[in-house]
Amino acid sequence: MAEATQDHYYVPTAAKWPIVGSVALTLAVTGFALYLNGSGIGMKITVLGLILFIVMLFGWFGTVIRESESGTYRSWEDVSFRMGMSWFIFSEVMFFAAFFGALFYAREYSVPWLLGEGSGASTHTYLWNDYTEIWPTNGPGDLGESDFHMHWWPLPFLNTVILLTSGITVTWAHHAIKAQHRTQIVIGLFLTVFLGFLFVFLQGVEYVEAYHEGMKLNSGIYGSTFFMLTGFHGMHVTLGAIMLTVMLFRAMAGHFTAERHFAFEAAAWYWHFVDVVWLGLFIFVYIL
């Protein structure tokens, strides 16, 4: 509901960045589709599209930051931004839900059925009656190279600690913003970003290890769910860390007052979201 103190809602005129964004996305996906179809120039078009997309992000967010710093937005607009960000995060949650759903379905239904339980009995009897693996499994066709089990110890556990710690440091930075304690803001954000990228790096180490053992994206349903879930999560951590990096630079440039620092909060919410997704992964992908 509108705040009684504000009678004018800011409606920007002419926005030139959205169309750039559409062209960029179209180039990126067209190129990628061409690449998947085996065309040589595909990747080049994708890279072009991605560069244009990054230009668009700089342009669009640049405009918004300038407007924000010049006091264009007040509490009424701020509420819209908050809602926008929260529901965007919710949509991301549902995207992950699809992949978690696939994991549960595979473990609860498709693999047991292939083992002969329930309604899948005949598949087992006639097609794959020597199939006995429970979980992890690369399926009755023994796809990929190996079905090496990813362990929760030590790297993933370390990563859990890292991500949880980064959740604390980002909260510390938030408190520092409210207290307008510049050095603490910068240190808090710096630590968060550092931990974020460290997480991504260690995840990379883990991937390399897995590939050495022959556990790959094509290693049946276990490889599929493992790499898609952790892969998308890793991409989101990277994105979140980039957002926080921008916040770090903005904090160093003296942005964010004690009352008004929504951009920071949005990035922090996003960070907590990737944190929570990780906890889900840690439990359902690694431990159970």
Partner: peptide, 8 residues
């Protein structure tokens, strides 16, 4: 990947 592939 083998999300929709019984062999996997």
């Amino acid at each position: 990947t083998s999300f929709f592939n019984a062999a996997g």
